[in-house]
Design a protein around this nucleic acid. Structure first.
Lengths: 221, 221
DNA sequence: CTGAATCCGACACGATACTG
DNA sequence: CAGTATCGTGTCGGATTCAG
């Protein structure tokens, strides 16, 4: 595979970018960090990517030892998952996530795909990078019409996405629609408080207070 | 500026990559993290970039608020430097550096530019990411024929590049040529020990022992 | 319906030369 | 020193097609 995107620097940063600097590569890794995905899961999640480019990128990532292809013999289903080498790109995604939250967020565009699970992944990563901790383990659930409900959990040390598995009552449930949820995340200060005021939130006073603190929602009028 | 590289995801990682994901952008930031640079400094350091693309990328980074252009009135000299927003890309570069050192290094290619200062920047960043600490503050100097001598210093807490300014005797001096120094960094285990054996090292026994430990040079034959 | 392959056009990028 | 200008190539997007 004649890489055209070479820099010819003797430098670890340049070497890394030669491997995962092409368009889409890091976003594929981002989505696989949530767990193994099928081709069409990735296709949908990446929104604008064409099958051709997803195929090519997956092959490149595979031959770079970042992604593995799991195909059960007999089954037709193919699952792509990260190797250990690929999972170690986590800190790169986390650093981009922090910078993006701090310096590159804006409200969602009309045609933009809003994946609830992905937005909670970003929140968990940001909280972990910022060292935000709750006093006790807790769980939040966010519900919107178009997405399966998603949960984020603080286990006493770090924040993680939660799958569908065990449903002990979460400390707090937010009900909204995906658009409003995204606008909530993109806004700051009073604007964020205004959007928050229009969402339905169920939970104890302490839980709500901590949620407001975590998202820096001013107490406002 | 009609960004062609848009992803249309509501996601901080995708937003970041829309700003700094184009070819060369992050490498310009990498070089500016060492301090302000002139156009031709960057041109030389980036090795294969053409003036046209360097100009375009600098304009983009400027209008994104990542880079500032300093031009003394009357003087022709222009210096580019990072804004605070740009400096906060440091953790992104650091994460790419760690991954590159762990998973993407290989010996230098023949035509490859080897900048001593940049390689020490990468080492300092890697040591800091890995939490390597010395028991006392210390300084190393690396000398090669083609580059100005470069120094790296541990101040008791973090590792930093040192400019040319104050020259109290470093704890350890390595004399080599740039090619051998790069091969030393690219090698592991016994290979690294073999290259190390061919370099001239001056310093106290403790200083040399710590250097070997920091670079994981086996004691060997 | 999943998991692709193929063709074509737009534009991002590279190589080289030239300018205030 | 700090860029422009010109021209060719490669990367990528869009639409269509295809086999299991």
């Amino acid at each position: 595979m004649a890489r055209t995107r070479t820099y010819n620097h003797f430098c670890p940063v340049a070497r890394s970018l030669e491997v995962i600097g092409e368009k889409w590569s890091l976003l594929i890794v981002r989505d696989l960090l949530r767990g193994p995905q099928r081709f069409t899961d990735l296709l949908r999640g990446l929104n604008n990517i064409t099958p051709k480019w997803l195929t090519l990128r997956l092959r490149e990532l595979e031959s770079a030892g970042i992604v593995e292809r799991d195909q059960e013999p007999g089954r037709k289903e193919v699952r792509y998952r990260l190797t250990e080498k690929g999972a170690q790109l986590g800190p790169v995604i986390a650093a981009l996530n922090v910078w993006g939250v701090d310096h590159a967020m804006r409200p969602p565009e009309p045609g933009e795909g809003i994946l609830l699970a992905r937005s909670l992944q970003a929140i968990a990563s940001y909280f972990n990078s910022r060292g935000l901790k709750a006093e006790v383990p807790l769980e939040w659930e966010i519900r919107t019409p178009d997405n399966p409900p998603a949960r984020i959990r603080f286990d006493g040390e770090t924040w993680r996405l939660r799958g569908e598995d065990p449903p002990p009552a979460p400390a707090l449930v937010v009900e909204s629609d995906a658009q409003a949820w995204a606008e909530f995340l993109a806004a700051r200060g009073e604007d964020r408080a205004a959007v928050f005021a229009r969402m339905r939130v169920a939970g104890g006073d302490d839980a709500v207070a901590f949620f407001r603190q975590a998202f820096r929602i001013p107490v406002g009028a």
